[in-house]
Write a protein that binds this DNA or RNA. Structure first.
Length: 472
RNA sequence: GGCGCCUUGGCGGAGCGGUUACGCGGAGGUCUGCAAAACCUUAUAGGCCAGUUCGACUCUGGUAGGCGCCUCCA
């Protein structure tokens, strides 16, 4: 398979560090609130990447973190629950929203069972260890409000700061310098550890006999958790394009400063933003939606998944309700196709007929398409064409396995569509009889009865075929 | 200002130097006792100006517009 690597800015052949196990790290959510659908699209990308790597024949270890301690989680937890100790309210808030996050993940078809989740607050120890190593090696210095990483030192050690983006002195905005309120030596330097302020949760930390009780910086969390869970270097690091700088750049610097090998992750895969009204969704602009908004408008969360998969992950996609409706119609068409598996009437008489290529060969083609830097739009395009063929020609033996294979690739839950009830089947049988008796009135009554239950019928030369009616 | 990306038919959204993307929506039709959300067929493109080429939506240069990052951020 091939994958675009931000390190080279090219689509590269994917060659794992160790072919026995591909190790993927995805920057996860900050669990202080509902995530918005832009965040969700990023996780749909990460989930799909893992599916494609697995379909290409690899075993995968996929790790995602929960950022459960940072400015936002602390602030929000204290706004929400004022009466408890700082650490307790933090845990209360973050465990609540971790649960909400996992529910959202499942709802949009991301396989959370295939991901190892790591909480930042469970990894404080390895963060302290890493910071101490950096300090001993001279890459970190203690300031009044915390411990900082020295980019100057890192550069002087011979490694490149700016592997993902071009970082130059002139690329830093004036505003950035003027608004700089931290007590650090140089503009780009970033906090590894922040000393406790009043009423903040804190973890003990001693360095050279100084009491530096406080909490980790954002970047160090990912460095510690990724190498803790996956070792270093690992294969693929994913995240949104906005994380390239400074977050991923800083992760690289922290994680490689004391190492001989300058490689932190072999591949960096970044997804583009989901735009709304032509702009990036953000909490500050208040122009975002959550999955709850999508549900409230009567849409299937999986329609959102399909909307995301219809566009290439490295291109900005546009979210509108019209687009979501189109995606939902497309999804329901796939469901109508999947529902045929319950209906012998929709099966082809001529099993050997090669009117369309076999299921296995088609799936191989899908994997090839998806393996081409996750070309989901092209793969879905051929899927549409293929399912249309099958729907018109009649399916063959093995459709259930076929649907399961599609689900492994796309997570659209095609293989688990339920059959109609026995009572409904009985009504169809009675209508068949009424029809053959020429009793059109009774036949139409029975058909209306099913319509009320959300089941539509169409008559074919082999008999009636049902489909679920659109609810929206 | 620095770095990067994008501009396709009614909407969304792809690949490709010469042949249908695909989806939704629209139009026409088929099967039917009627009907159909099912199937079939179909129309509508490639910001603008040059260049390369036998030939460009696809390559090159310019230009206009848009977006992202440079600060927490998927």
């Amino acid at each position: 398979m091939k994958l675009h690597n931000t390190l080279s800015r090219e689509v590269e052949k994917f060659e794992p560090i160790d072919a026995r196990l591909v190790r993927i790290y995805s920057c996860g959510p900050t669990v202080y609130d509902h995530i918005h659908i832009g965040n969700l699209s990023s996780f749909i990308f990460a989930d799909t990447l893992r599916r494609v790597v697995m379909a290409s024949g690899y075993k995968v270890k996929h790790v995602m973190n929960f950022t459960d301690v940072d400015d936002k989680t602390i602030r929000r937890s204290q706004e929400k629950y004022a009466d408890l100790a700082p650490i307790e309210v933090l845990m209360k808030l973050t465990s609540e929203y971790s649960g909400v996050f996992l529910d959202d993940m499942k709802a949009v078809g991301n396989n959370v069972d295939a991901i190892d989740f790591v909480k930042a607050t469970d990894s404080i120890d390895s963060m302290r260890t890493l910071i101490k190593e950096l300090h001993e090696a001279g890459f970190a210095y203690v300031a009044d409000d915390g411990i900082y990483f020295s980019i100057d030192k890192y550069r002087k050690s011979g490694k490149k700061y700016g592997q993902l983006t071009e970082i130059t002195a002139s690329s830093t905005s004036e505003a950035r310098i003027q608004n700089d309120e931290y007590d650090k030596e140089s503009v780009h330097d970033f906090a590894l550890w922040k000393k406790q302020k009043t009423n903040e949760p804190a973890w003990p930390f001693e360095l050279d006999g100084q009491d530096l009780a406080g909490r980790p910086g954002w970047h160090i969390e990912c460095s510690a958790m990724s190498s803790g869970a996956l070792g270093q270097p690992f294969d693929i690091h994913t995240g949104g394009v906005d994380l390239m700088f400074p977050h991923h750049e800083n992760e690289i610097a922290q994680s490689t400063a004391t190492k001989d090998d300058p490689t932190y992750a072999k591949y960096f895969a970044h997804n583009e933003h989901l735009l709304i009204d032509g702009n990036k969704m953000s909490k500050s602009l208040d122009n975002f939606y959550t999955l709850e908004d999508i549900r409230q408008k009567g849409f299937d969360p999986l329609a959102f998944r399909l909307l995301v998969l219809q566009a290439h992950y490295r291109k900005q996609a546009h979210f509108t309700w019209d687009n979501l409706e189109a995606a939902q119609n497309r999804l329901f068409n796939l469901y109508t196709f999947a529902d045929l598996k319950h209906q012998p009437n929709a099966m082809s008489d001529v099993i050997e007929e090669q009117a369309y290529e076999g299921y296995e060969k088609f799936i191989d083609g899908q994997i090839t398409d998806l393996g081409n830097d996750l070309d989901t739009p092209i793969a879905l395009s051929s899927l549409s064409t293929y399912t249309r063929h099958i729907a018109s020609k009649g399916y063959r033996q093995g459709i259930q396995a076929f649907l399961e294979a599609l689900d492994r690739l796309y997570g659209l839950e095609l293989s688990t569509r339920p059959d109609i009830t026995d009572e409904q089947k009985q009504v169809i049988a009675e209508r068949d009889k009424a029809k053959s008796d020429g009793d059109w009135q009774k036949s139409d009554e029975l058909r209306d009865q099913l319509t009320d239950q959300g089941i539509g019928l169409r008559d074919t030369s082999k008999g009636a075929i049902w489909s679920r009616l659109r609810t929206r």
